[in-house]
Simulated scan of single mutants.
Amino acid sequence: MKGTLAKFSTGSPSFLYRRDALIVILASVMITAVLTLGLRQLWGFSPQDTLSLCVIAIKNMIFIGVLWRWPGSFWVIGLTELILGAGAALVRLSEVLLVNHTATGLGGYSYWLPLSYIMAFIVLPPRPALLFSLGLFGGLAGLGIVYWSSPEVPLQYKTLYGNSLVQMYAMHVTMIVCLGLLLLVQRHYVSAIARAQAQANLAHTDPLTGLANRRQLDDWLQMALHESQATGIPMSVILFDLDHFKRVNDTYGHAVGDEVLRATATATRCAVRGVDRVGRWGGEEFMVLIAGDLRAAEMVAQRVREALQNMTLPLPVPVTVSCGLAQARPDDAPADLLQRADQALYEAKGQGRDAVAISA
């Protein structure tokens, strides 16, 4: 059970939904208990009922406060609430059926019995939730069987309340089936979303390096350029490619060339800042979108050069790169900015490679 619960990260949308749903249910029960206490004089509650309602209200208030302050307590509070709810359901129905013989009917408490099933499907993963619900229903059904077969229960009570008991158990079965079906639909829905997200990620990710591909870089570039022109905050571009990469492929094979590209992607990720974005532009060429001016871009470019030179690879010489830098202008289109960065890249190659050139 512990391993199954650990699959739900405390930061995941699923966990946050479960925690919020548990808080809502606890709050609803607490409010109902408080309102019922306020009307207890009209209904002639026993001291035991009054005490039970007070305990429920105080307990739920404490549980809500702990859940709100410490979300990681969800499992402890959720399981505690499940155990208390299931235990109370069994004890109360046992009292109604086997002690009072439903002399006063099934009582208002019977309407709350299905709440434990809902709680189970909120707190527990699917399979444990279903097993818990079936186990609880089995216990409640067992009490009904004992009641119906007991010679101590007057026949007129069985006749009078038999239909109510059957309807109650039928409703419990319907509740469990509906919750199970809703969960099944949810799982298919979540799986469909996950597949769609995976396909979307593949459409924007370079399969070899795991970096953003050219399509994603195009989208990022347009958004960054538009934001820069709207706010006046500078942005720049670094275009760099691996020097003499064709020679690496021809000499050592494409498998080694692919390893160099993957290592380049890893080293570049580590070299850029958190606000910058990097991707594979194509072949051995990469792009870095810089949130800043040419000074910031040059600093990042130098870090990239050093990081690539220090890579551990099955090559007798270090990997070097040529970098071209350009800063966005107020009237730039993406093609204009890229053209200047590309010209700077060729200037770096013309300087003998392993260099950084800045567009005028």
Results as ranks from 00 to 15, higher is better:
E347A: 12
V288D: 00
G162L: 10
E284F: 01
T312N: 15
F121V: 00
R329E: 11
A120G: 00
V123Q: 01
L345S: 00
V153A: 04
G292F: 10
R69S: 11
S73W: 05
L165I: 03
H254I: 10
L184G: 13
V248M: 02
T266R: 14
D20R: 06
A341G: 06
G11T: 13
A129D: 02
N60Q: 08
V275C: 13
G135V: 08
F137V: 04
Q216A: 06
M61I: 11
V272R: 03
V278W: 08
P71T: 03
D276I: 08
A57F: 04
H204Q: 12
I56L: 15
K59C: 09
F132V: 05
V91H: 10
G324Q: 05
A212N: 11
Y346E: 07
Y189A: 12
R262Q: 15
A333V: 15
A224L: 08
S52H: 07
L140M: 09
R340E: 02
M235T: 10
L184T: 07
T231G: 07
I58L: 14
A348K: 03
F121H: 02
M168D: 07
L225C: 08
V91R: 09
M171A: 13
D342R: 00
K7G: 07
A271N: 04
A224M: 08
T320H: 08
K246V: 13
M223A: 15
E81V: 15
G138M: 11
G107L: 10
A267C: 07
T80M: 07
L67A: 00
F8C: 10
G350N: 08
I238L: 01
L39D: 00
R295M: 14
S28F: 13
Y252M: 06
R329S: 10
A21W: 07
N100I: 14
P47L: 09
R273G: 14
L211V: 04
S228L: 13
A194H: 09
W148L: 12
P114D: 00
D218M: 09
L182V: 00
G210S: 08
D49P: 05
V356R: 03
L208C: 04
T209E: 04
V76P: 03
E306A: 09
E285W: 09
R18C: 12
A265Y: 12
Q351W: 14
P151Q: 05
A301F: 14
L140Y: 06
A271D: 06
G44W: 00
H244V: 13
V237P: 01
M223S: 15
T209A: 10
G352F: 08
D250I: 13
